[in-house]
Design a protein around this nucleic acid. Structure first.
Length: 907
RNA sequence: GCCCGCUUAGCUCAGUGGUAGAGCACUCGUUUCACACGCGAGGGGUCAGAAGUUCGAAUCUUCUAGCGGGCACCA
């Protein structure tokens, strides 16, 4: 399509009456992508400011959910907005290798073939996962395209890319060399199903209705027994002590003595430890250092041996004794309890609620196990992050409350991070062992050989926590550890948009690594989005089956409607999803479509950008008015997007478009543009209509990219002329047009006030018509009295419009209202209006209507009078405010006077 | 146990000291030449409750109640 020479001559059938979103959705994205519109290189201005976002990488195994749709919408609004403002804009896409999830998915596939990953062996299994990734990993990226996400596909990244893997090894080696990564035996969270260690953040605590078992242990050399309480009796097989509080009188003389562990026969000491709460249970605690984190700590303090009675499958080991070895942990529990009962050593069992830890992926109950793992020391890095925050180096959370505090509280109480996972899919830990047991950490196997001085090395079998690579995402994707142009240009990024549940897991870790490796917090702002709940206020989850599929919404309502609904809902507080809401925005899209349809059907000879002559003094009032209103919404939308108040931008756009533009401007313009002869004045009026529409489309584009592009291309005169100078050589597209900016010179308070009088007048007449039950086909006479000469002039100029919109056969404007007795009357600011209703008026009903109106005004006047009578108000309130209130009162009083006269006239 | 958020029209939510708002739903009218996914006109709220600060409170403070969330402990 050519631009400025394009002339619109549409016939009604060229433009369907109802907007079909799928048409526009199927055609524009491909072209944008093909023309490189998403790449920052499209911007030719060397001085252009920078705007950059990295996407929170979705799992390759994943499918789009509502949280993604919300986040992507907001990111896209920001990216499109800044791009249109001439920023060199990068929104970098990519996916995450999602270690456990992906491995599980592929293992499940193998199972169908009757195989396990062990049948294949590590190398072939990993190859198989890659194969899976190539085949299915594009699902989520295709969904991003469907959403209209303006991401730069030329910079798409995957956490397992060679380059990003190099960044992972580099980070690991540097941290290791600084002593921030260490390896050792500690008690960790073990998932017996996934067969791997997990970090504290990957387990979920959940209340559990369990039992508290009171077990009696015989004290050696006496007939005394000491009773301990436990929720996990099976672990008693691994007890290596019983602990009591040193100040507990009941047990004082037992400290230092020995008990004989029932079922096992092991002799274990009774020790004293301050951590024992004398008021809980019996005040005596069994100590199982190998199977409980607290006991582990106590064991360290008292040098207790570790007896490992459970293996990685949560089955009892040989050390548990022949009677129990091989049993599952729950079978063992039953057996232990039964045996204690038989021995008369089970004192009692109580119902007891406590918290159990579950694997947040598979819900299996976590088993605390001692094992050799790699850890990252977090203290120092957390302190650096806290200091950056305190010094205003970021990040700034939006909304600030409560996230800043949530973030800093977590950093202040940080624990070391278990980073090794017993998986095959992931970044293998860059550590090797020599035959003589030396540990070599290196960037590559070659480097390790050189360091070790031998070729006979074995690499550590474990891989790193997926979040370890995610933590590097904002800079590894831009080329780190190389000092690339991209890294220099786009780091730190402008903003991160993400969900609250990964503030610790991801956001804080990116801050820490960003500071550590690049020296700067990786993003200026962090937008934490609301949660989308189902209509009952429940969190959506696959398990509950209450999820809503964004793709389904796209099909039913269109992408644009879904996007703007999400943008409108995106405040700090969670929102319940209701389809009715999308429906109303689908209606909005249809409204936009039909407004454009009207403009185009009346566009012959007209061109975007024309029709507003230089001499503003000659503009019609409604033209000055719409330009002022447009300027107002432009200002508000810009401000709202910049402060991440997307819902406010949507509100402003919705009401400007629907109320101001459609309900009034188009309706008023009909008088001018539908003339049969295309005189210069008519063409100008048509051009003005197109010009305002085109501006509105640009304001809407970041929220509704498809419909705006579709219409924009049909507008005569929309083309290169509207492109932002930074994209001057690009093919015309609204996504590279300048985003409108407000201009104080276009504000026109007087026009807004005068236009409001016209609008009010029309509304009063319509109100009378409605209340008097006048048929739409019936045209009425409208009599207007206005003392102010300027206002009379305005009304006179708008007689044709008033006639049309109030369905009047005649409109008479006079200084004083003179109307027959049989008239319905109303008062507007500065004017009185009467509608003669010979034979139609019900005097009683009309009196009733006027009295209702008067009562309303009197109530308001009373309130204002009371306020003005208050000396405190007059003395303390700002003079400006007092004046405003006085003006309001004067206006009300004038209208009351008119009403009184109207009632009098009725008799 | 500690911390935080929310409570505004029937529903879902905006609204940070000065006239209580929107969308949907509802009522009435309407197929008027862009749009019935529309047009026009309406009704509807002790802003959870109490006390305070202030000339003035949905808005600031304290307390109470209900709902929701996070963290810690849990033998």
């Amino acid at each position: 399509m050519t631009d400025s020479t394009k002339t619109a001559k549409y016939i009604a059938s060229d433009i369907p009456k109802a907007y079909d979103p799928h048409l526009a959705e199927s055609k524009h994205y491909q072209r944008w992508e093909a023309q490189g519109c998403f790449a920052p290189e499209k911007n030719r201005d060397p001085q252009a400011p920078i705007f950059s976002i990295v996407i929170p990488p979705p799992n390759v195994t994943g499918s789009l959910h509502m949280g993604h749709a919300l986040q992507h919408t907001l990111m896209d609004v920001l990216a499109r907005y800044h791009r249109m403002r001439g920023y060199r804009t990068l929104w970098l896409p990519g996916t995450d290798h999602a270690g456990i999830s992906t491995q599980i998915v592929v293992e499940r596939e193998l199972k169908k073939e009757g195989l396990t990953r062990h049948d294949l062996g590590r190398e072939r299994f990993v190859a198989r996962v890659w194969q899976w990734k190539e085949q299915y990993g594009s699902r989520i990226t295709e969904q991003l395209r469907r959403e209209g996400a303006s991401v730069d596909w030329s910079r798409e990244r995957f956490t397992m890319d060679e380059h990003l893997s190099r960044a992972v090894r580099e980070a690991f080696v540097r941290l290791y060399e600084e002593g921030l990564i260490y390896r050792g035996d500690y008690i960790i969270n073990w998932c017996p199903k996934d067969q791997t260690a997990l970090s504290d953040l990957e387990v979920e605590k959940e209340p559990f209705q369990g039992k508290l078992y009171y077990l009696q242990y015989p004290v050696k050399g006496s007939d005394r027994r000491i009773t301990v309480a436990t929720t996990r009796p099976e672990t008693m097989l691994g007890d290596t002590a019983v602990a009591v509080n040193p100040h507990d009188e009941r047990y004082r003389e037992l400290i230092g003595q020995t008990v004989i562990l029932p079922l096992v026969g092991r002799e274990i000491p009774i020790i004293a430890d301050e951590s024992v709460d004398p008021d809980f249970g019996t005040g005596a605690v069994k100590v199982t250092p190998a199977h409980d984190p607290n006991d582990y700590e106590m064991g360290r303090r008292h040098n207790l041996p570790h007896v490992i009675v459970m293996d990685q499958h949560a089955r009892m080991t040989e050390a548990a004794g022949p009677e129990f070895a091989g049993l599952d942990r729950y079978e063992a529990r039953e057996r232990v309890v039964q045996r204690f009962s038989e021995l008369g050593l089970l004192e009692r069992v109580e119902d007891y609620e406590f918290a159990i830890s579950r694997c947040d992926r598979c819900r299996t109950v976590i088993e605390p196990l001692i094992s050799t793992q790699w850890f990252c020391r977090m203290n120092e890095m957390a302190r650096a992050a806290l200091e950056a925050l305190a010094r205003g180096r970021g990040p700034r959370f939006i909304p600030e409350v409560p996230w800043t505090k949530v973030y800093s509280d977590w950093l202040e109480n940080i624990h070391d991070w278990c980073i090794s996972r017993q998986l095959w899919w992931g970044h293998r830990i860059p550590a090797w062992y020599t035959e003589d047991g030396r540990l070599i950490v290196a960037r590559s196997e070659d480097e390790a050989r050189a360091k070790a001085g031998t070729d006979r090395l074995e690499q550590d079998p474990d891989v790193l926590d997926t979040w370890f690579s995610s933590a590097l995402w904002p800079f590894s994707t831009l080329g780190w550890p190389d000092e690339t142009e991209d890294l220099k240009t786009f780091y730190p990024t402008s903003v991160l948009v993400t969900a609250r549940d990964i503030i610790f897991l991801w956001v804080s870790r990116m801050v820490m690594t960003g500071l550590k490796f690049v020296g700067e917090v990786p993003f200026r702002d962090v937008v934490i989005t609301a949660l989308i709940l189902d209509k009952h206020g429940q969190k959506m989850s696959k398990m509950k089956g209450n999820t809503i599929d964004p793709l389904d919404l796209f099909d039913r309502y269109g992408v644009d409607a879904t996007r703007i609904t999400l943008a409108a809902a995106s405040t700090g507080t969670d929102v319940r999803w209701r389809d009715e809401q999308v429906e109303s925005f689908r209606n909005f899209a249809n409204k936009i479509w039909n407004a454009a349809r009207f403009c185009l059907l009346n566009a012959e000879g007209a061109t975007v950008g024309r029709g507003f002559s230089e001499d503003r003094g000659r503009w019609a009032l409604h033209d000055r008015w719409i330009v002022s209103r447009l300027n107002r919404v432009t200002e508000r939308v810009n401000a709202a997007i910049q402060s991440y108040e997307f819902h406010d931008a949507v509100q402003a756009l919705y009401h400007f478009f629907w109320d101001d533009f459609c309900d009034w401007y188009i309706e008023l313009a009909k008088v001018d543009v539908t003339a049969s002869e295309a005189s210069p004045a008519v063409v100008d009026a048509r051009s003005r209509l197109l010009t305002i529409l085109e501006q509105a489309l640009r304001l809407l584009h970041p929220f509704m990219p498809f419909i705006t592009e579709e219409i924009w291309h049909r507008l005569p005169g929309a083309g290169k002329a509207q492109l932002h100078p930074a994209y001057a050589d690009a093919e015309p597209t609204i996504m590279l047009a300048s985003f409108p900016q407000s201009d104080a010179a276009r504000r026109d308070e007087q026009a807004e006030r005068q236009m409001q009088s016209v609008i009010d007048l029309i509304k009063r007449v319509r109100n009378i018509r409605s209340e008097m039950n006048i048929k739409p086909s019936e045209h009425v006479r409208v009599l207007v009295g206005a003392a102010d000469a300027h206002l009379r002039e305005v009304f006179v100029a708008y007689v044709p419009h008033i006639s049309r919109l109030a369905r009047a056969s005649e409109v008479l404007i006079a200084e004083r209202l003179e109307a027959p007795r049989a008239s319905a009357r109303a008062a507007v600011g500065g004017a009185e209006v009467a509608v003669p209703l010979e034979g139609l008026i019900d005097f009683a009903a009309e009196r009733e209507r006027l009295r209702r109106e008067r009562a309303k005004l009197e109530k308001e006047a009373e309130k204002i009078n009371a306020q003005l009578a208050n000396t405190g108000f007059r003395e303390h309130a700002p003079a400006e405010k007092v004046e405003e209130v006085k003006r309001r009162l004067a206006d009300i009083e004038q209208r009351l006077k008119s009403l009184a006269q109207a009632l009098e006239a009725l008799g």
